[in-house]
Design a protein around this nucleic acid. Sequence first.
DNA 1: CCAATAGTGTCTGTGAGACAGTATGCT
DNA 2: AGCATACTGTCTCACAGACACTATTGG
Lengths: 266, 266
Amino acid sequence: MEDYLASFQKFEKTLQNFQKGLSVDCTIIGYKDHKLSILLLKWKKVGSWCLPGGFIFKNESTDDAACRVLEERTGLTNVFLKQFKTFGSMERTWNASKSNIALTDKMLKMIPVNDFDLVSDWFKRRFISIGYYALLDIDKCETQPDMFSEECRWFPVDELPDLILDHNEIAMDALDQLRIQANFLPIGINLLPHKFTMKELRLLYEAVLHKPLDRSNFQRKILNLNILIRHEKKLTGAQNKAPYLYSFNRDKYEKALTSGIGLFSV
Amino acid sequence: MEDYLASFQKFEKTLQNFQKGLSVDCTIIGYKDHKLSILLLKWKKVGSWCLPGGFIFKNESTDDAACRVLEERTGLTNVFLKQFKTFGSMERTWNASKSNIALTDKMLKMIPVNDFDLVSDWFKRRFISIGYYALLDIDKCETQPDMFSEECRWFPVDELPDLILDHNEIAMDALDQLRIQANFLPIGINLLPHKFTMKELRLLYEAVLHKPLDRSNFQRKILNLNILIRHEKKLTGAQNKAPYLYSFNRDKYEKALTSGIGLFSV
DNA sequence: CCAATAGTGTCTGTGAGACAGTATGCT
DNA sequence: AGCATACTGTCTCACAGACACTATTGG
């Protein structure tokens, strides 16, 4: 409880260093067991779920702010993180709807600050939020809630709860963007073990694109990209032919990241 | 000169109604004579060229702010206008480079304000800018400079001068986005006369995509989209077969706008 | 007649998608 | 041998791109 009070009082002092009325929201998409999940935070006392986000220091680039949020929540750096859209409608204000008003009231009540008016004024502005999305390996994360939240949890993309404000819309937009991106850029280098089977790679693509892919056609297309190196076979103990192991040719992978590839039609 | 002073003093008074440190920049792409141009403004006294932009009222959505800027500069509403990227690096500050410092000094000197510190503080912040692009018919525009600029002029896309800050980068990003969009969404309904020939439509696409398209293949692809209605022939007086006139089937055009189409590969 | 440009048809190569056939590891 | 799954090959269809051919207008 000491920490609780201390962290808010520290936050209150740093408010003036942030850019007013502006925030970043990160749709952090995690991959595990051939499924995609999104990292959500549960607000202290209020109980509502929301996307991880943060404010932008006056002397910080928006990309750095998004990286900072991502690192604070997951411990990870150097993962795929991309700005995709900025949300700036007037419905993003505390008094745009009854539920927003109730939410803001609850939240302000729970914050133990010295200067209530200062903090209240801060949160009652319309917030314009720059949306980013990330794609990463859940097993590599050490997730941590922020000072406003009591819990963070991964939710499968098709089981998201109701989120505050327009965060459901933001998350869906992020998923759409990821799916479009997956058709032009290779994915997987940070999501799979160093050596992996073609089936593991296909399951990743199926999870991201949210549709089944033909096994043999997938293999042909991916191999034609020339970004894979084939290694020895992997004996699994199952009574079937052993699959080959592959790894990414990092050089060619990087090149494909900049020049783009064509993969699967919509 | 009265207006000049008055407009700045009015601006100074309304500063507090704007969201600090945030702006919209519009890459207004105009079509005329089978060529694309971009509308630029020339700053008073300073002489540098820049993209049209504006600040965002605290009680205004970012989309509305972009619409407002577009209408103030061109007189047009209801044209294709799309948010495409938000620019928020630290290089977007008055003191990020020598040229920026010189620019800001010049600009501040030319502004006849009462409270110099207020205005100086306003402009010396890092500005995060939400980028929009529009595509419209130059002949339908009545362009007007804003209070900071003495002139506005259309520049062919391949003859842009050096612009302030990162505006060259913004404009190039906007063109890239337009070209990508043109492959998924139909264009032309506000850029061509009601009835037009296939050649006029093709020249529009060639201007946007910045490459020649095969005459007969273009015709086949466009007709297969089923968004055109064929009308009578157009006798031009030239000694050749008269081309048919076409118009857009507005219903199907709108549907294609939402569902998307596939057109020309990169 | 010819010149110029519009409209239509044809050929080829590529690639996606469906699916059959072959190979291999284990019981 | 038989099963399960991996790998490879083939077929078809669609379409993009190149280009040839026909149609029409006016000199």
